[in-house]
Amino acid sequence: MTHSKITRRRIWTIAATIIILVGVFIILIPLFWMLTTSLKTYAEAESMAWLPRKPQWNNYFTALRAINFWRALGNTLLITFLAMTGHVFSCALVAYGFARLRFPFRDPLFVILLATMMIPAQVTMIPIFIEFRALGWVDTFYPLTVPAFLGGSAFFIFLLRQFFMTIPTELDDAARIDGCSHFGIFFKIILPLSKPALLTVALFSFMGNWNDFMGPLIYLNSPEKKTLALALQDFNSLYAVQPHLMMAASLVIMLPCLAIFFFAQRYFIKGMVITGVKG
């Protein structure tokens, strides 16, 4: 009886593996096609040849020149890193307040913070645009970076607060006896012990801003201020029928996200799990 059970178990595992392999294959087709198309000649891309006869690395130079790559990259990096810095520091400070300090109305305020996670950005998009326009910030990077320094994302605050709660409070007590202030504890104990969670927030923030399209679309007009996402969209509306060039440019812009994902996968998974499973 146990013997047949083990056989059945093995058949089950093999069946599962086969289905997963099919799934893996399907998932990879778009990326594989993207890579091969980016190396085709125009004629090969048009005639749907499966593989390029000779890889056209030149496509990459042509495509990147066409989207004014270096300037757009500079703009994107500036926005992305400013916003990332803002997110990490402001969200960590706010999360510390909610996780460790006692003050009147703390819990109702935290419930409000959680509720704001449900409000889509599009609901407040128009008044915020009017606000920034009144400040004269349209066509500057401020609308895309300043909010990150002001708590920025309820999701990040929640994620960090959940992490801070797992740090034993005995450490705070010991530091307090040694004469450490609340913010001394934050800088000397909480932050150093939370590097994985802070990195998770930094990576999520990077990905979000790197890929953001609506923000730059609304706020940035001048060509020299365009981000990669905007430049790519402009290029697509002009060269939509040049799939090989479009795929080359798109792949370059996806590449940092893919690289970060492969090197720091566990931080993404941790972030998803902290908020999804334990929340």
Binding site: V94, G97, L101, F103, L109, L150, G151
Partner: peptide
Amino acid sequence: REALSGYFAISPWLIGF
């Protein structure tokens, strides 16, 4: 003092909110 520190800590979010 703790309450004051608390409000200071969450002040970026309060302003942003």
